[in-house]
Design a protein around this nucleic acid. Structure first.
Lengths: 218, 218
DNA sequence: CTAATATTCAAGCTATCGCTTGAATGATGT
DNA sequence: ACATCATTCAAGCGATAGCTTGAATATTAG
């Protein structure tokens, strides 16, 4: 009565894909990618209830995408390894290349302004060495506090309008946020470019930067 | 009333993942990876009903994983591009590394025999140039007929027992099948090694070999 | 040991999924 | 136009997913 090994394998592979098939779990993964966190913190960040968050996290754990450990009263979840990020990114790439709807949404984020190609992490590292670039971190302050690209300035999207005037139009600006799923950087770039500033988006976000083994200051 | 762009994007990404979350669709993708095919052929190969197959194929198309074109009365489906294969493979890798259950199933396929590391496609290409290797294609004859690695010999799993005696124990044997989801090659290796033959599995299968831009003879 | 806190479990509800069946649509050849 | 063949559509069914609510289970503090 045992099912075939092939069917059993496919069931397991499907389990991994299924874990990535709910938007709520994708946002959870995006948050966990910023750094390990407990259930309550993740629930706060994502707006899900605690119980719901716990259930989603267990689904992610069953699929091998995250691991958990106890720390006192809390249970801390973290990504299993870099492959989880790679998988999320590949899904994003497939969606961007093949789904017209994604194209449309991303174009909508630019809101008429031209959206230049993102800056690669390598290029940014070079520019940083030259000191010829201003880096904006457009994530919430608490995430910034948990780690950010050295020299980056933390600016909430809401404060961007006020800050824009203080930025040098001559220096190139590079903005980043949580990662490839995050739209803050897109929106920041659009706002800055409308003001005539030379702003581009960083490819990926902090998790990818960190994954490259580059320096992150707490 | 419009939902946020972020939520809309996540919905699209989730759609891609969801397409990969049903075993039936994974087997369909594996078949399509062998070469483009019509609905009826895919239904035959997978054992699904025609209508069911058609519905799954449409889900895959909506997710951008496959494309279709009309050819006379038939509708031919094919993979959108190499990224679909890459995505399937990354899911497999994540499952193999992180899920104990997968480990167990794969070990079960070796059935007590030692399972050596698979042969990389590069290594096989070198060995082929030297002529120091026997290549076995353990897929069904009709798939073999649609394309195979040059010089490969097509052997059904059922006939393997009879063939084994005719194989030179001195020459290394490399077996392959449809791709990383296919278990025929695993089983073939196990059977051959039990007979004392020096057999290893090719990494990936024909689609991956083809994707590397290597020669495939019809 | 008891209280407080963080997480998980369990039950229930609605929406969706995967599959089947039977009818409708599209393209081709006579 | 008609018949034929391949595919898609539409309706229906049982099973499952995602969310909520309320209770149960660790773990630490007092």
């Amino acid at each position: 009565m045992s099912i075939s090994p092939k069917a059993a394998l496919l069931e397991e592979y499907a389990l991994v894909a299924r874990a990535l098939s709910a938007p709520a779990r994708l946002t959870l993964l995006e948050q966990i990618a910023q750094g390990e966190r407990g259930v309550e913190a993740l629930a706060d960040k994502t707006g899900l209830t605690i119980a719901n968050t716990s259930q989603h996290l267990q689904a992610l754990r069953r699929a091998g995408l995250v691991t958990s450990r106890r720390a006192g009263k809390s249970v801390i979840y973290r990504l299993s390894d870099a492959r989880t990020l790679a998988l999320m990114d590949l899904i994003r790439v497939v969606a961007e290349r093949n789904l017209a709807q994604v194209e449309r949404i991303l174009r909508g984020l630019s809101d008429g302004a031209d959206a230049p190609e993102p800056v690669s992490r390598e290029e940014l590292a070079l520019r940083m060495a030259e000191g010829s670039v201003t880096i904006l971190d457009v994530r919430p302050a608490d995430e910034f506090a948990m780690g950010h690209i050295p020299g980056a300035r933390n600016v909430a999207l809401a404060d961007l309008e006020g800050i824009a005037a203080t930025l040098d139009p001559g220096t190139e600006i590079v903005a980043y946020c949580r990662g490839p799923y995050c739209v803050y950087a897109h929106q920041a770039i659009t706002a800055l470019r409308k003001r005539g500033l030379n702003a581009r988006r960083l490819e990926g976000g902090l998790p990818e930067w960190r994954e490259d083994g580059r320096l992150v200051t707490a």
